[in-house]
């Protein structure tokens, strides 16, 4: 042992030295570094989780946005459809009204025409009758033959009837 240089004092020194070194390195090297590594791991995990959360939020926001967009689009479409429908109904109404008015006007016109015709006819009859009477009187004054007279009156009346 002694020839190998083993010396109790030196051996104990080395053991103490190692213990001290281990303590100092633990304090100044391992502990700070391992703590920092753990801290870093924690932070990275946290930021990854945060990123995940943000991503989810973004996704949710996008979904909301999409939903709202679809809603708006649907609403717009329904509004357009309603408007179209209303316009169509209005158009039909208008057309019907116009047609009705036209029909009424036509009927009125026809009625008035008829009345005027009747009036005219009546006027005409009386006038003709008057005329005939005057003509007849003129004729009669010249050549009064009851037979001819009668015949003339009948002819006149027939002609009137044909005219009618």
């Amino acid at each position: 042992m002694e020839n190998l240089g083993i010396n109790v004092q030196l051996l104990i020194s080395q053991i103490i030295n190692f213990g001290l070194l281990a303590f100092l390195l633990y304090k100044f090297l391992y502990n700070p570094i391992l703590n920092a590594l753990n801290e870093r791991t924690r932070r990275i995990q946290e930021s990854i989780e945060n990123a995940e959360q943000v991503k989810q939020q973004l996704q949710r926001a996008r979904q909301d946005y999409d939903a709202q967009l679809a809603e708006a689009r649907r609403e717009a479409q329904s509004i357009i459809a309603q408007a179209t429908e209303r316009a169509k109904a209005q158009e039909q109404e208008l057309v019907a009204e116009a047609r009705e008015r036209v029909a009424r006007m036509e009927a009125e016109a026809r009625e008035r025409l008829e009345q005027e015709r009747q009036q005219l006819l009546r006027n005409l009859q009386s006038e003709i009758a008057d005329l005939v009477t005057r003509t007849a009187s003129v004729v009669v004054r010249q050549q009064l033959d009851p037979k001819v007279h009668q015949k003339l009156i009948e002819e006149s009346i027939q002609q009137l009837g044909r005219m009618n």
Partner: peptide, 8 residues
């Protein structure tokens, strides 16, 4: 040095 290796 055997002192150190033996100590370890």
């Amino acid at each position: 040095d055997l002192n150190m290796t033996l100590a370890l």
